[in-house]
């Protein structure tokens, strides 16, 4: 069973068509990049996957749970990092983690253990006591990723998680999340930057709300630079 299965998904903002006939299923334990230029519909897709928006067209299943029919079971299997940071800056890393654990009904020693484990996975273990305001952008993002893991989701969704970060921080985050996939987690990573994608990753190319391709990065680029193939497919322009 796949962690995320999408069929014929469509969505419009008024008359503006943002997603159209989107269908794909993620391979379990794979890092799949959702690659699309600005305005392709990546964030819209993420809003639908996390049920912030609901569409009448198509269906979404998370770990076998239909998101429309059993939303709560489906949501409990999703970990998500949104494009805009959602942090309590004046609280410590640990407090941010515990707050989120509580939203999933996890408290006490269990929350403590899960929080420590998740932070360790992102190389953040020794920062648990620090105030989030004192962390740099890269570490803040890593905390958000750790937080999204606290309830053991089947699939981790990340919407352009490296935007606005310096090269080194980006590199560290890309490495860490690839590491998570290597340890068996299904990862779905939205981006418009081809250098975050590795040859053994899967790629879903999204352009103007439609899926143009879904295959392994190595096959997709077929010996050419991925950037070149991507620009060829999308015309290299922004559609926003």
């Amino acid at each position: 069973m796949t962690a995320l299965d999408i069929k014929d998904l469509g969505y419009s903002y008024g008359t503006k068509r943002a997603l159209d006939g989107v269908s794909f299923a993620l391979r379990p334990g794979k890092f799949t990049a959702l690659l699309g230029p600005n305005g392709a519909g990546k964030s819209t897709l993420f809003s639908l996957l996390t049920r912030l928006f609901v569409s009448r067209e198509g269906r979404i299943a998370v770990a076998g749970h239909d998101l429309a029919r059993t939303p709560r079971a489906a949501l409990s299997k999703i970990g998500v990092v949104f494009q805009q940071p959602t942090l309590d800056l004046d609280m410590s890393v640990a407090m941010n983690m515990h707050y989120f654990a509580a939203l999933h009904g996890i408290s006490g020693r269990d929350a403590q253990a899960r929080s420590e484990r998740a932070l360790a996975q992102l190389g953040m273990a020794e920062r648990a006591g620090e105030k989030v305001r004192d962390l740099n952008g890269g570490h803040r993002r890593r905390m958000e990723i750790a937080r999204a893991l606290i309830h053991d989701p089947e699939v981790l969704l990340l919407d352009e998680p490296t935007v606005g970060l310096d090269f080194k921080s980006r590199q560290a985050i890309v490495d860490h999340v690839h590491g998570l996939a290597e340890r068996g987690l299904t990862v779905f990573w939205a981006t418009h930057l081809v250098d975050e994608i590795r040859d053994y990753d899967d790629v879903v190319v999204l352009h103007r709300g439609r899926v143009l391709a879904h295959r392994a990065a190595a096959k997709l680029r077929a010996g050419r630079p991925l950037a070149e193939v991507f620009i060829e497919m999308t015309g290299g322009e922004e559609t926003a």
């Binding site: 996390t50 049920r51 912030l52 709560r72 079971a73 949501l75 409990s76 999703i78 998500v80 949104f82 805009q84 940071p85 959602t86 942090l87 309590d88 989120f100 939203l103 999933h104 009904g105």
Partner: peptide, 18 residues
């Protein structure tokens, strides 16, 4: 706070309770 609301609403608990 919009962000924190988004976080809140992705919790699997019923929305009315949240």
């Amino acid at each position: 706070e919009m962000g924190s609301m988004r976080l809140l609403l992705t919790s699997p608990l019923p929305r009315w309770w949240l």
